[in-house]
Each structure stands twice: as structure tokens, then as C-alpha cells.
């Protein structure tokens, strides 16, 4: 094995060697070793993805197993004949563009507090990271329902300070979406850790130099911390944005799968799920999934493109 690897790595014999090795016995053993993964990948990832692309152009209904080709009719219906579709698009954008900045701001603020060399800082880091480990799962969403229920903790606290305590946080269209945003923000742990790593890489002498030049706290933050942190912000922003567009569990549990009140929790993935697994219109759901993929990819590409104007890489300067 080792010798064959060396052989393929040698540039002059590269092409020849590769050809021989592919047919050779050594590679067979290699493929057999990764066969479990390959089988899993093809059976559970690649083939279903390919199938969903085909299904997007059919009227496949789970109950009647014979799909018919309908061309682009699913997409037509989505864009011009389905009022709830656009509601779900609007709510998803609303959710992503409010929850992600809030979460990142929160994560950065806490990461900065954590960099200070205090006692027990490790404990705090672990404690604040915990929500992310348990977050985004069913149990937490169920707990969230309890917290914001009419007889929940939030109203109980409001009652003790004499504020109106009978708000139906989850039933009121104005507040329901914010309970889900709050849940997303609460899961700030992983961007916080990444910020923490980024903050530690900023050389201390830059702060010293800035301080000597008379920069205050705010100036040091805006002139030193933020610019040097932009690659990290960029990374977190991309990852969290993708997360924001695919949020499902919290909205599903909190609205009991309905997206109510007034479809304010009808995020795109939830509506997709409703179409596929409740109304059984798998063809339509597959079409929705592909639109989501394309839009998310475009948006990510847009963020990447924009990065040239605001992301600062220290080594470029050198």
C-alpha cells in the first residue's frame, strides 16, 4: 500500500501509475474497505438526491405509487398559485435575517467576555456552550413551549414584577415568531467558540500599540478587533445563514406542525414537510426542496462575492 501511494505521487509516472493501480488488486481491497461508506452514500444520499430531482417534475403522491411527468407544473404552481408558499418564503427570510445577526452579535459579545483571564472562565465557556449541544432538538423545543406557555415561566416572571402576564406568546402572531428567534439565538454556543478562537489569534501587541496611540475601548473594538475578526464573522455568517434557512425542529414542535398562528411559524422546511408528509404531495415537496437548495446556494455565493469588500485577511497586507 505504502509503495503504491509513493508511486502515484511521483509526477513523472503519475498518469501511468494511476491507470495501473486502478485496475490493480491493491485498489480493490481499498474499495472493499470503504464499501460500507460507499454503499451508504449511494443508497442513502446520492440516489435519493437524484431521485428527488426527477420527482420534482412529477405529481408523485405517496399514496398512489405511480408518478406522472408534469414538467414544470410544480414550479408554476409554487410561484403563482400557492399563497402559503410565499408566506413561507417571507417568514423564512424574516427569521433568517433577524435571528442570524442577533445570534452572531450575542455570540461575539459573550466570546469577548470569555477572553478575559478570569477565574472559572473555562466553566463559563462550557456552560454557555451547553445550549448548542442540547439545542435544536425536540426536547428543547418542547421545553420552549412550556416556558412561553400561557402558564409558563415567562408569564410567571412577568406576574411577579406586576406586568401583564396573560400573553399567549405562542398564540399571538406578533410574538410567536420571536419565541423561535429567541430559541435560535439561545443556541449561540458554536459561533461563540469560533469567535473565541478568532479573538485569541489577534496579536496582543496590536491592542497595546492602539492603546499607546490613545485608542479607547470602542476604538480598539472597531479598529482592531472587528477588522481582524472579519474572516471569522464571514465564516460564522455563512454557516448560520444556511442553518437559518433550514430551521425545522423548533417551528415544527412549537406550532405542533401547523405553522400557526397565522402561518407566522410556517418556515420553508416546515411547509415542505407538510406538503410531502402531511398532504403526501411528494413531487411538489421535491420541487420545493430543489428551489431551497438553489436559493441557499445563490445566497451563499452572494455572501462570498460580497466578502471581497468587507473581509480582511491580515496576510494580504504583507
Amino acid at each position: 500500500m505504502i509503495t503504491s501511494q509513493f508511486r502515484t505521487a511521483r509526477p513523472e509516472t503519475g498518469r501511468q501509475a494511476r491507470g495501473r493501480v486502478r485496475l490493480g488488486e491493491h485498489n480493490l481491497a481499498g474499495y472493499l474497505f470503504i464499501a460500507p461508506w460507499l454503499i451508504g452514500f449511494f443508497a442513502f444520499t446520492f440516489i435519493p438526491i437524484a431521485a428527488s430531482l426527477v420527482l420534482a417534475f412529477t405529481n408523485y403522491n405517496i399514496l398512489s405509487p405511480l408518478p406522472h411527468w408534469v414538467g414544470v407544473r410544480n414550479f408554476e404552481r409554487m410561484f403563482s398559485h400557492d399563497p402559503r408558499y410565499w408566506v413561507s418564503v417571507r417568514q423564512t427570510f424574516y427569521f433568517a435575517f433577524t435571528s442570524v445577526p442577533l445570534k452572531l452579535a450575542f455570540a461575539l459579545a459573550l466570546a469577548m467576555l470569555m477572553t478575559a483571564p478570569r477565574r472559572l472562565v473555562g466553566v463559563y465557556r462550557a456552560a454557555y456552550y451547553l445550549p448548542s449541544i442540547v439545542g435544536a432538538n425536540v426536547a428543547v423545543a418542547v421545553m420552549w413551549r412550556q416556558i412561553f406557555g400561557t402558564d409558563g415561566v415567562v408569564n410567571a416572571v412577568l406576574a411577579t414584577v406586576g406586568l401583564p402576564a396573560h400573553t399567549s406568546w405562542l398564540g399571538n402572531p406578533a410574538t410567536a415568531v420571536w419565541t423561535v428567534i429567541a430559541l435560535a439565538v439561545w443556541e449561540f454556543g458554536s459561533p461563540m467558540l469560533i469567535f473565541l478562537a478568532g479573538l485569541k489569534q489577534i496579536p496582543a501587541e496590536l491592542y497595546e500599540a492602539a492603546a499607546i496611540d490613545g485608542a479607547g475601548m470602542l476604538a480598539r473594538f472597531t479598529r482592531v478587533t472587528l477588522p481582524l475578526l472579519t474572516p471569522i464573522i464571514f465564516f460564522n455568517f455563512v454557516v448560520q445563514m444556511i442553518f437559518g434557512f433550514t430551521v425545522f425542529t423548533s417551528a415544527f414542535i412549537i406550532s405542533n406542525g401547523t405553522g400557526s398562528p397565522l402561518d407566522t411559524l410556517l418556515f420553508y422546511p416546515l411547509y415542505l414537510y407538510q406538503k410531502g408528509f402531511r398532504d403526501f404531495e411528494m413531487g411538489y415537496a421535491a420541487a420545493m426542496a430543489w428551489v431551497l437548495l438553489v436559493v441557499t446556494a445563490l445566497l451563499t455565493a452572494l455572501i462570498f462575492k460580497s466578502s471581497r469588500y468587507w473581509v480582511f485577511y491580515a496576510q494580504e497586507e504583507g
Partner: peptide, 8 residues
């Protein structure tokens, strides 16, 4: 109210 109904 329906708000209460949805939340409970």
C-alpha cells in the same frame, strides 16, 4: 381566544 387555544 384562538390565541389561547393555539398556545395551549
Amino acid at each position: 381566544s384562538l390565541q389561547q387555544e393555539i398556545s395551549e
